[in-house]
Simulated scan of single mutants.
Amino acid sequence: MLLKKLFFSSDKNDKYCKMEQKLRLLELEIQKLQLLEKQWEKLQEENTQPPVVIEKVHIDKIVFDKFELNNNFGQLGIKELKGRLNIGATYGNDFLRPEAEEEAEQKQEGVRKERKKPEKPQEGGPKINIQPRRENVT
């Protein structure tokens, strides 16, 4: 009996009982947390929606609050400027002519100017320009 009292004293029993109770409470808490985690995962799976695919987008109105355009032309050098500036309606002139055609046309205009004789206007009377008739060749 003495040995029983040594190993199974009331103080020790109380400590062991309290520890066992705490251990059981902790195990119950762990089980509750596991159940909550499973429920959370189920809710997440139910709430996940398939991805949204947008096929067409129609934009009615675009509003710019601020637009900045910075050009630094201080270091820009222009050696030759070619081309044409069209302002307004230019029907039928959508293309740029090659340089060779432009040069040929300028030469023809120069020859035409040389052929024309300057007419002397009559003093005090009306100015008269007489040009020959052009025949239409079809």
Results as ranks from 00 to 15, higher is better:
R115G: 08
K32L: 10
F95C: 07
V111R: 02
N86P: 02
L76M: 11
G83V: 14
K5T: 05
M1L: 15
L69F: 14
C17G: 02
G88H: 01
E68N: 13
K38H: 15
R115D: 10
N71M: 09
Y91T: 04
P132L: 00
P50A: 03
E103C: 05
E119A: 07
N71Q: 07
A89H: 00
Q34E: 15
L33M: 12
S10I: 01
Q131K: 10
Q21A: 15
E114K: 04
Y91S: 09
Y16N: 08
E102D: 12
K15P: 14
C17E: 13
D60W: 03
E46L: 03
M1C: 07
F73V: 02
T90M: 04
I87H: 09
T90V: 13
T138E: 15
S10T: 12
R24M: 13
L81R: 02
G110P: 00
K117F: 01
N86C: 13
R84I: 14
L81A: 15
G110M: 05
K4S: 15
K107M: 12
I87R: 12
D65N: 08
R112I: 01
E123Q: 02
F64S: 14
R133C: 03
S10K: 10
E20L: 07
P132I: 00
L85N: 09
N47Y: 14
P50T: 10
K32F: 04
G124A: 00
P51K: 06
P98R: 08
K117T: 03
R97C: 05
D60I: 06
Q21S: 06
S10Q: 08
G92E: 13
L26M: 10
E29D: 08
K117P: 00
K18F: 02
L3Y: 04
F64P: 05
L33I: 10
I130Q: 06
M19W: 12
K12F: 14
N13V: 07
K120V: 11
Q31G: 07
Q44Y: 01
S10M: 12
N71R: 06
E29G: 01
I59E: 09
L69Y: 03
N129S: 06
G88M: 04
K79E: 15
P118V: 07
L85A: 06
R112N: 13
Q108L: 03
L76G: 00
T138Q: 09
E37I: 06
E123D: 11
F7Y: 08
Q34P: 05
R115T: 01
K79C: 11
L81C: 06
G74Q: 13
K61S: 03
Q106S: 08
R133W: 13
R24T: 02
N72A: 04
K22H: 11
P121D: 00
Q39S: 03
K5N: 15
V52R: 10
I30S: 04
E27I: 01
R112Q: 11
K116I: 04
G92N: 09
N13M: 03
G83K: 00
D14M: 10
I59G: 07
I59Y: 03
R84K: 14
K113S: 13
D94Y: 06
S10R: 08
L3K: 12
N70A: 05
V111N: 00
I130A: 02
F73E: 06
I62E: 14
R97K: 15
F73D: 13
F67D: 11
K117A: 13
E123I: 10
Q131Y: 11
W40A: 11
G88N: 01
E37S: 10
L23F: 07
